[in-house]
Simulated scan of single mutants.
Amino acid sequence: MTSTDSSDASTDDRSTLRANCADCFALCCTAFGFQRSADFPINKPAGTPCLNLADDFSCSIHHSLRARGFRGCTVFDCFGAGQYVSQKLFGGTSWRERPDTSAEMFSTFAVVRQLHEMLWYLAEAAERATASELSGPVAQFRREILRALDGDASEILATDVERIRLEVRQTLIDVSEEARGGYAAGAEADLSDDLHPSADLVGRDLRSIRLCGADLRGAYLIAADLRRGDLAGVDLLGADLRDARLEGADLSGALFLTQLQVDAAQGDDTTVLPAALSRPRHWLA
């Protein structure tokens, strides 16, 4: 993410919130750890390089991660935090060149990723709240986060991320309620009682259920069947879409959908995505 004037948070430049691995010191492959599971075939402690990390910070098995059991790597999104920390905050000097900076760099990356993720959601909230009283709080939070990112690593580490996250979350909920109001007003009776925040919908066949306007924030939609479904006005903030069937589904009007959620799901060339997101390579294989 390039430095942005914190006095102007109205510009939605999501390109700065997308990962650019070429300008990153493989922070996602070093800072975070993982345990052997369905998503990873090995254990890796936090703060250590992945065994597949090449000398130029690229992944030596990038094109076969899924086949080799590193599915978790394919559904991770740093929201552009990697290049921001590597290039802006640490001036393009890697943790290999300066091992003494590694701990601070990795910790800063974890914080910046959270801040960038919130900026991604707030960018969408700003689009949806242009004619609403909520546009003020949305713009305020965007300015606050951008000001925090303008600091150096130590200042960013001192940011009260949890407080900002809680307040941003409530604002996103308010934006969602307003955006979904038009759907629920005339069809509330058609919405299943099972469709609610944090709902357990693992493996459920939802093709016969009206979804438009549903609040599925934080819902477990693992392997759920949403094929050919219309998800207009559906709040998917934090929903778990691993292996969800999205073939032929229309998600163009879904709320707070991210690339990592799409990457974790199953879809095809008939799945309709929001303009800000791209079709995963494995959908077309």
Rank of each mutant, 00 (worst) to 15 (best):
I173V: 09
H62A: 10
A54M: 06
I173C: 07
R128I: 01
A125V: 03
D56Y: 03
D5A: 07
S102K: 15
L277I: 12
V85A: 05
L65M: 14
C24S: 08
R279P: 00
I173Y: 06
F79T: 12
D56K: 13
D152T: 08
T270C: 08
A81T: 12
A31G: 08
A275S: 13
E144D: 14
I42T: 14
R242M: 06
T30F: 04
R68Y: 12
E97P: 01
D200N: 15
G80K: 13
D190I: 00
R204T: 09
I61F: 02
I164P: 05
R245P: 03
T108L: 04
R66A: 12
T258V: 12
R227V: 05
D100V: 13
T108V: 15
D13P: 02
C28Q: 11
V175N: 06
I222P: 00
G72N: 13
P274E: 13
L134C: 07
A239V: 11
S135W: 03
Q140C: 05
S10M: 10
S94A: 08
L27S: 06
G72M: 09
F34H: 15
R204W: 08
R204A: 10
A276K: 10
L157C: 07
G238I: 03
A224V: 05
R128V: 02
S60C: 08
A275R: 10
D250I: 11
L216T: 00
H62C: 07
L237D: 01
F106L: 11
A244G: 07
T101G: 01
G33E: 09
A185T: 09
